[in-house]
């Protein structure tokens, strides 16, 4: 088992009042290597909090998250950054590229932080760039790129470390439908090559590209669906159906 989440809970306290907000109540699920999982929920369902905890950007109030047998909620604050850059890859909604670096250096960044030799960086980029169609962009600055190009660069950056798990936070939210489709196909390709992916989204179209969808509401996982051999459009219909019946809308 690559990732195991047991009885995860997160309660937020505001600093000056005694009011508390429960973002996650009791979350349980696990992921095996090579899976492609989408976590679906409305805004306020707790999906972003869940992602932040998996990303070690936030600590849970209760529960255990273990990646490859390591309980990541117990990692010391000083070691967190190292853990992140060695085991996790991130694809964010707003790309999070550094304006100060050109595309190549943005992609190299995690490996530079890991103090890997330049040769390895070059080799990995050499295999990744054609796959992501970014070979021509390497010498540009981020502000010269379109949204779709930026996100492909961000994916390249996430893949450079060959992470155990890629975490995506609404990776297509800032893209138009054409670029969005292209990107989702790309994720499927990457997954086919064996990369484990977990992303959170509120869009059934995005979720329909995953192999498994978990539904989250009010801080709990309510339901899950497997895509199996269905096409994305069939799967999309079923997700929508599940959304209205299980999550109930209004």
């Amino acid at each position: 088992m690559l990732l195991e989440v047991n009885h995860l809970a997160k309660v937020f306290k505001t600093r000056f009042s005694k009011e508390t907000t429960t973002a996650l109540r009791d979350i349980d699920f696990s992921i095996e290597t090579g899976e492609y999982i989408a976590i679906m929920g409305e805004s306020g369902s707790g999906k972003t909090t869940l992602l932040n905890i998996l990303a070690t950007l936030e600590r849970p109030t209760n529960g255990i998250v273990s990646l490859n047998g390591t309980n990541i909620t117990r990692i010391k604050a000083n070691d967190l950054a190292k853990f992140r850059r060695e085991h996790l890859g991130f694809v964010f909604q707003d790309f999070n590229l550094l304006d100060t670096l050109n595309v190549r250096d943005n992609i190299y960044l995690p490996l530079v932080l890991n103090r890997k030799p330049v040769q390895i960086m070059q080799e990995r980029l050499h295999t990744l760039a054609p796959l992501l169609h970014i070979s021509e962009l390497l010498n540009k600055q981020p502000f010269e790129l379109s949204g779709g190009q930026k996100q492909r660069v961000a994916i390249a950056r996430a893949l450079m470390t060959q992470p155990d798990l890629i975490l995506g936070d609404e990776p297509t939210a800032a893209l138009d439908s054409k670029n969005s489709d292209r990107l989702l196909t790309l994720f499927e390709q990457i997954n086919d090559e064996g990369q484990t992916i977990l992303m959170v989204t509120h869009s059934s179209v995005v979720a329909s590209h995953a192999k498994r969808v978990l539904f989250i509401k009010d801080g709990m996982i309510y339901h899950q669906l497997y895509r199996a051999e269905r096409s994305t459009s069939e799967f999309n219909k079923e997700i929508n159906l599940a959304m209205s019946s299980v999550l109930g809308g209004n």
């Binding site: 190292k82 992140r84 304006d99």
Partner: peptide, 16 residues
């Protein structure tokens, strides 16, 4: 600010 936020998320420790 933005750059360092990104750096920290990508994996730069506070010390670094």
């Amino acid at each position: 600010k933005e750059a360092f936020r990104i750096l920290q998320e990508v994996g730069l420790s506070e010390k670094e």
